[in-house]
Computed example of a mutant assay.
Amino acid sequence: MILYGLATCDTCRKARKALPQAEFVDLREQGMPPEVLAAALERFGERLVNSRSTTWRGLSEAERARPPRDLLAAHPTLMKRPLVVDGDRMVLGWDKAAQADLGVI
């Protein structure tokens, strides 16, 4: 199980605490492997982009109009977090449904 997120993100910290067995990958330092990004975009589409983030608010309209793959490649912190990958299963976010899906609650 791999948890993709940011070390400074409170939500990611909660997920890491609840999933101590998961390997943590900091998007800011290590980025996301292209094949994982492609699979996540196929599964979640535009929901993978966090349009409520400070990074998003700092983008120009032209940048916001770019395809999600290009946006996330240029600004990995734009990804909704965390993304938990466990084999073929992917869980995005840390709401009650995501926690239930991962067996945390």
Rank of each mutant, 00 (worst) to 15 (best):
M1L: 06
I2S: 04
L3H: 07
L3N: 05
Y4N: 01
G5P: 11
L6S: 07
A7Q: 12
A7W: 08
A7I: 06
T8K: 02
T8C: 02
D10C: 09
D10L: 09
C12Y: 04
C12F: 05
A15T: 05
A15W: 00
P20N: 01
Q21Y: 02
A22F: 11
E23Q: 03
D26L: 08
E29L: 08
Q30E: 15
Q30F: 12
Q30R: 15
Q30K: 14
P33E: 12
P33F: 08
E35L: 12
A40K: 15
L41F: 10
E42S: 14
R43K: 15
F44K: 13
G45W: 15
G45E: 15
G45K: 15
G45N: 15
E46Y: 05
L48I: 15
V49W: 14
V49T: 13
N50Y: 13
N50R: 13
N50C: 12
R52E: 09
R52M: 09
R52W: 03
S53K: 03
S53M: 06
T55D: 11
W56V: 05
R57K: 14
R57C: 06
R57L: 09
L59P: 10
L59S: 09
L59F: 10
E61V: 11
A62D: 08
E63M: 05
R64S: 04
P68N: 08
P68W: 07
L71K: 05
L72F: 08
L72H: 05
A74T: 05
A74R: 07
H75N: 10
P76N: 08
T77S: 12
L78T: 00
L78V: 02
M79V: 09
K80L: 10
P82H: 10
L83N: 01
L83P: 00
L83E: 03
V85D: 02
D86Y: 11
D88T: 04
R89G: 09
R89V: 15
V91N: 06
L92Q: 01
D95I: 04
D95N: 11
A97M: 02
A98H: 00
A98S: 03
A100G: 03
A100N: 05
D101L: 10
L102P: 04
G103S: 00
G103N: 00
I105E: 06
I105A: 07
